[in-house]
């Protein structure tokens, strides 16, 4: 088997998580790549929705470089604006939200607004919610892509941008007035997480071959639920890597990025 990079592992795992005959609300970068890979392999009847307004485009001009890229509108079958895309979501047409962020907590709440607790004068200002807050609220299942680091898997967020299971209480999302069922998977290059049905806490599902559950716990600041049957993550085959490198992100905009230390 060929060597693969962390980004390729994330994109491949993202693809594996998506089922056929569903609609995925994608974010820029790895989510688009994961969805394109799924379409080319096990999910030919999976469609994407882009927040600028396009539903089920045919990406024959190449991978859109952002969700607002005009290429994301190519041969769509429905093309309106942001209200159109998010109202389809609010109505229940978007099965998966694919979002990222700077911090995640054990209940799958995500921060992408600020670092440092003072909203009026934060330590760092991130771009903001964008679509993520609305996607996490009203897509049926939320999939997050995160870098597996202690400073990102935190006990307490600086700001809740995208709602997960809140404080873990069973009626939190209902009280919040949102409709999706909430966090479903958290994807990193070394581990795949789900959420415990009862406690709503993040649960380790799979680890990268060669890693142990303890290795993963060491990179997470809160206590994970680690069941006895943690599996090994599947690795991309040569054909998967060919699709990712030569067909989907042929120019290497996302997969060839260098990770900053």
């Amino acid at each position: 088997m060929s060597e693969y990079t962390p980004f390729e592992m994330i994109a491949y795992t993202g693809s594996r998580v998506l089922e056929d005959e569903r609609i995925v609300f994608v974010g820029t970068g790895l989510p688009i790549i994961a969805a394109m890979h799924a379409q080319l392999t096990h999910a030919p009847n999976l469609y994407m929705i882009y927040e600028a307004g396009s539903l089920a485009p045919i990406l024959e001009m190449g991978m859109p470089l952002s969700v607002g890229d005009t290429r994301a509108a190519r041969k769509a079958c429905y093309l309106k604006g942001l209200c159109g895309a998010f109202e389809l979501t609010q109505r229940g047409c978007a099965d998966y939200a694919f979002i990222g962020g700077a911090q995640v907590d054990m209940y799958g709440n995500i921060c992408s607004t600020i670092e440092g607790s003072n909203y009026d004068k934060p330590g760092i200002r991130f771009p903001g919610s964008g679509g993520a807050g609305a996607m996490a609220a009203n897509c049926e299942k939320t999939i997050a892509i995160m870098a597996l680091e202690k400073r990102r898997f935190v006990k307490k967020l600086d700001f809740v941008t995208s709602i997960g299971f809140g404080d873990g209480s069973p009626d939190y999302r209902e009280k919040a007035g949102v409709m999706g069922s909430g966090p479903y998977r958290v994807i990193t290059n070394q581990a795949l997480f789900g959420f415990d049905e009862e406690t709503k806490r993040m649960t380790l599902l799979e680890v990268k071959p060669g890693r142990t559950p303890q290795d993963i716990q060491d990179l997470v600041d809160f206590e994970l639920i680690i069941p006895p049957d943690v599996k090994e993550m599947a690795e991309p085959t040569d054909e998967d890597l060919r699709l990712l490198r030569d067909v989907i992100d042929a120019e290497g905009y996302f997969l060839k990025r260098v990770i900053k230390k």
């Binding site: 209200c83 609010q90 807050g133 919040a176």
Partner: peptide
């Protein structure tokens, strides 16, 4: 959220003072 800002403009375009939405709640 992106929907929030978009639909705030939409509410204004509809001539109504506010609009109910199913996001923002439960987040900061």
């Amino acid at each position: 959220t992106n929907y929030g800002m978009s639909v705030r403009f939409k509410a204004a375009a509809m001539g109504i003072p506010f609009i109910p939405v199913r996001d923002h709640g439960g987040s900061d």
